[in-house]
Simulated scan of single mutants.
Amino acid sequence: MTTRIETRFADLKAEGRPALVTFVMAGDPDRDTALAVMRALPEAGADLIELGMPFSDPMADGPAIQRAGLRALGSGETLARTLETVRAFREDNEQTPVILMGYFNPIYIYGVERFVRDAKASGVDGLIVVDLPPEMDDELCLPALAGGLNFVRLATPTTDDKRLPAVLKNTSGFVYYVSINGITGTAAPDAGAVGRAVTRIKGHTDLPVCVGFGVRTAAQAEAIARQADGVVVGSAIVQAIEEAAPRGTEAVVDAVTALVRSLAEGTRGQSLAAA
Rank of each mutant, 00 (worst) to 15 (best):
residue 117 R to P: 06
residue 253 V to P: 02
residue 51 L to P: 09
residue 244 A to H: 09
residue 68 A to K: 00
residue 32 D to N: 05
residue 206 D to I: 05
residue 174 F to P: 03
residue 150 N to T: 00
residue 57 D to F: 10
residue 7 T to G: 06
residue 185 G to T: 15
residue 52 G to N: 07
residue 147 G to Y: 15
residue 199 T to H: 10
residue 117 R to I: 00
residue 42 P to D: 02
residue 158 T to K: 15
residue 209 V to F: 11
residue 187 A to T: 15
residue 61 D to R: 00
residue 59 M to V: 15
residue 210 C to H: 11
residue 233 V to Q: 06
residue 264 A to P: 03
residue 108 Y to S: 02
residue 194 V to D: 08
residue 255 A to E: 08
residue 18 P to D: 10
residue 85 T to P: 06
residue 101 M to H: 04
residue 226 R to L: 10
residue 74 G to T: 12
residue 145 L to C: 02
residue 32 D to Y: 01
residue 100 L to M: 09
residue 90 R to F: 09
residue 268 R to A: 02
residue 137 D to M: 01
residue 97 P to R: 01
residue 115 F to D: 02
residue 120 K to E: 01
residue 166 A to E: 14
residue 86 V to I: 13
residue 220 Q to P: 03
residue 235 S to D: 04
residue 55 F to A: 00
residue 72 A to D: 13
residue 216 R to D: 14
residue 158 T to C: 03
residue 6 E to G: 11
residue 224 I to H: 04
residue 63 P to M: 04
residue 39 R to T: 12
residue 34 A to F: 05
residue 265 E to A: 15
residue 42 P to L: 05
residue 242 E to I: 05
residue 100 L to N: 02
residue 63 P to Y: 12
residue 12 L to H: 02
residue 191 A to T: 08
residue 233 V to N: 07
residue 156 T to A: 15
residue 81 R to H: 10
residue 272 L to Y: 11
residue 160 D to E: 13
residue 252 V to A: 07
residue 196 R to G: 09
residue 256 V to G: 08
residue 244 A to N: 11
residue 164 L to P: 10
residue 181 N to E: 14
residue 150 N to R: 00
residue 172 S to G: 05
residue 119 A to C: 02
residue 216 R to V: 11
residue 107 I to P: 06
residue 209 V to I: 12
residue 108 Y to D: 07
residue 49 I to Y: 03
residue 67 R to D: 14
residue 176 Y to D: 11
residue 220 Q to D: 12
residue 172 S to A: 07
residue 19 A to G: 01
residue 61 D to F: 08
residue 169 K to P: 01
residue 159 T to K: 03
residue 57 D to Q: 04
residue 146 A to S: 10
residue 35 L to K: 02
residue 223 A to S: 05
residue 134 P to Q: 03
residue 214 G to P: 11
residue 16 G to E: 09
residue 96 T to G: 02
residue 77 E to Q: 15
residue 56 S to Q: 08
residue 15 E to I: 03
residue 62 G to E: 11
residue 207 L to P: 09
residue 237 I to E: 11
residue 186 T to Y: 11
residue 99 I to F: 09
residue 174 F to Y: 10
residue 192 G to Y: 04
residue 4 R to K: 13
residue 200 R to C: 05
